[in-house]
Simulated scan of single mutants.
Amino acid sequence: MREWQVKRRERTRQLIELGGLVVKAGLVELADDDRATLYGAFLTVAAKLRGEERDQALLLWKRKGKRAFEAESSS
């Protein structure tokens, strides 16, 4: 397989996994599947990560995410 094909498959897999997280978090239903709303929310998160509260936000979100994954795997 050519290098560009491998990279393309890796990127496709990453995009599918990220989309799965959006669905898993319930954001699709909560935003009525409105892409503009979801994009606006993501831009808000990105702005927060560019600000002074970056480290605190990352720590908080990472903890919440880990707990959610652990709770899901133990069910």
Rank of each mutant, 00 (worst) to 15 (best):
Phe69Leu: 15
Ala68Val: 13
Arg9Asp: 03
Gly65Lys: 06
Thr37Asn: 01
Ala57Gly: 05
Asp34Met: 06
Arg11His: 00
Gly51Trp: 00
Leu27Gln: 13
Lys64Tyr: 11
Lys48Phe: 13
Leu21Cys: 04
Ala25His: 15
Thr12Cys: 02
Asp34Leu: 06
Leu58Ile: 11
Ala57Met: 13
Gly19Ala: 14
Gln56Phe: 00
Asp33Tyr: 12
Gly65Ile: 05
Glu70Leu: 14
Gly26Cys: 08
Lys48Leu: 13
Leu43Phe: 04
Thr37Met: 08
Gln56Ile: 02
Lys48Gln: 15
Leu60Phe: 02
Arg11Gly: 00
Arg50Met: 04
Ala47Thr: 12
Leu59Thr: 11
Ala46Leu: 07
Arg54Val: 03
Leu49Ala: 05
Thr37Cys: 03
Asp55Thr: 08
Leu60Asp: 12
Ser75Thr: 12
Ser75Tyr: 12
Arg50Phe: 04
Ala71His: 04
Ser73Pro: 01
Leu58Gln: 05
Ala25Leu: 14
Arg54Gly: 06
Leu30Glu: 15
Ser75Glu: 11
Gly20Arg: 10
Gln56Glu: 05
Gln5Cys: 01
Leu43Lys: 09
Asp55Trp: 02
Lys66Asn: 08
Lys66Thr: 12
Gly65Ser: 08
Ala68Asp: 14
Val45Trp: 01
Glu72Gly: 09
Arg35Pro: 05
Lys62Cys: 11
Lys48Ile: 15
Glu3Arg: 09
Ala71Pro: 02
Gly51Glu: 00
Lys62Trp: 12
Tyr39Arg: 13
Arg63Thr: 06
Ser74Val: 07
Val28Asn: 11
Asp55Glu: 10
Ile16Thr: 09
Gly19Gln: 10
Leu27Met: 15
Arg8Ser: 09
Leu18Lys: 04
Thr44Gly: 08
Ala36Leu: 08
Arg63Leu: 03
Ala47Glu: 14
Glu29Cys: 10
Leu21Asn: 10
Leu59Gln: 10
Glu17Arg: 04
Asp55Arg: 05
Arg54Asn: 09
Lys64Thr: 03
Ala41Trp: 04
